[in-house]
Structures are given as structure tokens and as C-alpha cells.
Design a protein around this nucleic acid. Structure first.
Length: 308
DNA sequence: ATTTAGACCTGTCAGC
DNA sequence: TGCTGACAGGTCTAAA
């Protein structure tokens, strides 16, 4: 679900709300949410830590904790973070009443009416929550249970993110570096853009959007792009990611921000899930194909297979 | 050495 | 109305 812009937007919201807060305890409702280390160690080590800073790396949200640890959160497809004010109550009675339903839906959180917040379906599928000393609660909801939390020593950060390439928005991602990475790849450019080692944080939405921006067909071999095309695609990646952050990310069904609001970038998308609709540039109908088993959307006249 | 299919999970929607 | 299959923002692993 979230790609770089959605994670960045969440990080910014959390930074202003949670830096300085101390974690009292963690409740776990789906144990496999913890990817590293083992569950008992995770729970014992995280309690009592203070959040010193909040960052993003690729699609990972990073909470820097006291004692030189960091918590990394990857939301994969359907993970969301929601911040509850103090005054919530937790109902786990479903666990005994109907274990099968509990296993899928998780617990129920209730807010007193004074909270002013009105969450609805987002409160289902809670897999974990961090409870803070001041009574607030950071809920992690994840319908499909793919998301993972990991707790690492800060000195092992390189190891934790070994599978990530350059950050696209901080100067690490250069045209020269991008060109040499693409030159080694014979496969379709769409697939290569999804490789986090080539550029960190690009997913299915922004790969399609960046290719449309640059006028490049998704099936072109990455190595076949000329210098101008590589430059245009580089600009396209930076542009579509930056613009989406400004719009609060792209929401379809699941993605919500910290306070349960949907992102607005859906209204600015050019090709993603727009098949059958006219291209904003030329009016041709947007098409959908499968590339590397992922849905791929493009304009057949703006993005020619030959690149000519 | 690459590609590709399968796993991990649950829900929704289209078609019959 | 009910069943079946395709598909969903991601990434890892194993088999071809």
C-alpha cells in the first residue's frame, strides 16, 4: 500500500506528534508482525524507550529510540498507523468469544466521545499498538498481515537496510548512478524501477507515473534507454514522488494518514488505474498490461515501444 | 544468472 | 443468491 510519499507523509505527521514520547508497553495481536528479533526480546527491549527522532528510508518508517535502538516499520500492502488520544479502552473479549474471528479482525478500541475523533473501519485489523506514558496509543492496523516491525541496534542500520539503494529525494540518487544501474539491466524498465536497490521507495503507482512523465514504454529494456531518456526518467521519479508528498500521498481504499484521512494524490494520478480513460496529454485511451506479474498502466501513443 | 511462480493474508468486485 | 476466479499499494524464497 504505501510507497515513499505515503511513508514520508506519515513520518512528518508522527515527528510533530511523538518525538519525546516514552513507550510504556506494546500490545501484540498478531505475533508475526514482529520480523526481528524474536517476540519476547522485542517486547522486553522496547518498553520504557523514548522516541528521539523519526525518519524514513525507502518505504521504511524509522523511530529512533533511546539506548541506541531503532524501530523500523514496513507497512507492505495494507498497513496503517493511527494515533489515538488518551482516553481509549481496549476490548479483547472477542479472543475468548470467537477465536477465529479474533484472529482475523483483532481487538476493538473505543474512544470516549470527548476525543472528537471518529474512526470507523480503520479500527479493525489492529495487529499491534504502542502505548505511551501519557496515555496516547499508536495503532498499527494491517488487513493482510504482511507488514513487519523490526528492532535494531543503531550501529547495525546498514545491515537492516542492506537491500535498499539510493534515496531519491536527498541527492544520493544521481543521473550518472541511475544510468549505470540501468545499463546493467536487460529486463523491462518497469520491473527494474520496482527493484529497491536501483532506487529506494518507488512502487507500482509511481513507477507507472514516472514512466508516463518521461514518455517511456514500460516494456523497454532498461539498458536500451538513451542518455536523454534516463535523464527524463530520473526527473520523472523525483517529480512524481515530490508532488505526491505535497498532496498527502495517494489513497485508494486502505491508505489513511495518522488521523484517518485519505491522501489527495489520487486526484492527480495520470495513468495508474486509469485504463480506459483518455490520456491527459493526447486523449488516447490508457491501457493496462501485466509486467513482471504487476499491473502496469500507460498511454500507448505517448509511450511508444521503440522510444522514437 | 536470471526469470518466474508461489507464499504470505484477507477482502472486494466482476462474471456466470 | 452463491460460487469462482482475478486482483490489490510489497517483498522474500524456491524452483525452473
Amino acid at each position: 500500500m504505501p510507497e515513499l510519499p505515503e511513508v514520508e507523509y506519515t513520518a512528518r505527521q508522527l515527528r510533530s506528534a511523538l518525538v519525546g514520547a516514552t513507550i510504556r508497553e506494546v500490545h501484540l495481536f498478531w505475533e508475526r508482525t514482529i520480523g526481528y528479533p524474536d517476540v519476547p526480546t522485542f517486547l522486553a527491549e522496547i518498553a520504557g524507550r523514548t522516541i528521539e527522532g523519526i525518519r524514513r528510508r525507502g518505504k521504511y518508517l524509522i523511530l529512533d529510540l533511546s539506548g541506541n535502538l531503532f524501530l523500523s516499520i514496513h507497512r507492505r500492502m495494507t498497513g496503517n498507523l493511527l494515533l489515538l488520544p488518551a482516553g481509549w479502552t481496549l476490548d479483547t473479549s472477542l479472543r475468548e468469544r470467537d477465536p477465529a474471528v479474533w484472529n482475523t479482525k483483532g481487538p476493538t478500541f473505543r474512544l470516549d466521545s470527548a476525543s472528537g475523533l471518529s474512526y470507523s473501519h480503520e479500527l479493525n485489523y489492529c495487529r499491534a499498538c504502542l502505548v505511551f506514558e501519557d496515555g496516547r496509543c499508536l495503532l498499527y492496523t494491517d488487513l493482510r498481515k504482511f507488514g513487519r516491525f523490526e528492532l535494531w541496534e543503531r550501529e547495525r542500520e546498514a545491515e537492516a537496510f542492506a537491500q535498499l539503494g539510493p534515496e531519491p529525494l536527498n541527492g544520493e540518487f544521481t543521473v550518472e548512478g541511475f544510468a549505470s544501474a540501468l545499463a546493467k539491466r536487460k529486463g523491462p524498465i518497469k520491473q527494474v524501477l520496482l527493484d529497491q536497490l536501483v532506487v529506494a521507495g518507488v512502487g507500482n503507482i509511481y513507477a507507472d507515473e514516472a514512466l508516463f512523465y518521461a514518455g517511456i514504454h514500460p516494456l523497454r529494456s532498461a539498458a536500451s534507454l538513451n542518455t536523454d531518456e534516463v535523464k527524463a526518467l530520473h526527473t520523472g521519479i523525483v517529480t512524481v514522488l515530490t508532488q505526491s508528498i505535497e498532496h498527502g500521498g495517494t489513497s485508494f481504499s486502505d491508505y489513511r494518514d495518522l488521523w484517518g484521512e485519505a491522501g489527495d494524490n489520487y486526484n492527480h494520478v495520470q495513468v495508474y488505474k486509469q485504463d480506459g480513460k483518455p490520456c491527459s496529454r493526447c486523449g488516447s485511451l490508457i491501457e493496462r498490461i501485466i509486467v513482471a506479474q504487476r499491473s502496469t498502466h500507460y498511454c500507448p501513443s505517448c509511450q511508444k515501444p521503440t522510444g522514437v
